[in-house]
Amino acid sequence: MRQPVLEARNLSKTFASGAERIAVLSGLSVSLDAGQSLALMGRSGSGKSTLLNLFCGLERPDNGVITLLGERFDYREAGVAGQQEKRWARLRRRRIGVMFQEANLMPALSLLDNVRLRARLAEQPLEQCRTWLERLGIGELAERYPDQVSGGQRQRAALAMVFAMNPDLILADEPTGSLDRRTAEEVTAELFRLQAETGVALVLATHDPELAEQCQVTLDLAHGAPAGPAP
């Protein structure tokens, strides 16, 4: 039996807002196989970003178990966070590509240097970096700085960074949310093209139903259960 890339069981997370505690997630379970794509849907504040952060260890759930690329993170007992921290960091560094809506690049580095930095952290060969920029159609912008290129070009560079690290899982948080519709479609097309080519698993948080439709699985956080075609 194939091991799922990501398996989450019974995740719950609450936030303190003033005196109140708001439950963002309660008892959520989800599973994702290699090469699969999962769309996280929901309005803003529905917990999409939180869930993505839980999947890469930048946040901790209050309860539940996450198994990621064979590593098991059990949050049902208290006091285990310390050891988990390092394991999460290792995973993020080598195997999980995280991509945000914007500001994925270090402003003080050129696009190429950004890709090289990400590749170096993932211990991937640096020679491939320029190729990745070229594959994303921005090879001639390699020496430019983030503030010298457009938002779409920045997100392409961010894609180059993510793929240059040769990840097993990509977590993308509204990656086209700040782009105009056409650019967004172009960037999304690149994302899915490369995902298909590399066979990497993808979790995409978005509020755009059309984008979500391109994924194999959709998890609507408003309803709290995966929908769409069965795995």
């Binding site: 921290e85 999980i96 270090m106």
Partner: peptide, 16 residues
């Protein structure tokens, strides 16, 4: 702050 957090998102531990 955001950019130092990026380093964390890219897999550097807090200590690093």
């Amino acid at each position: 702050n955001w950019y130092f957090r990026l380093l964390a998102a890219w897999g550097l531990s807090r200590r690093e």
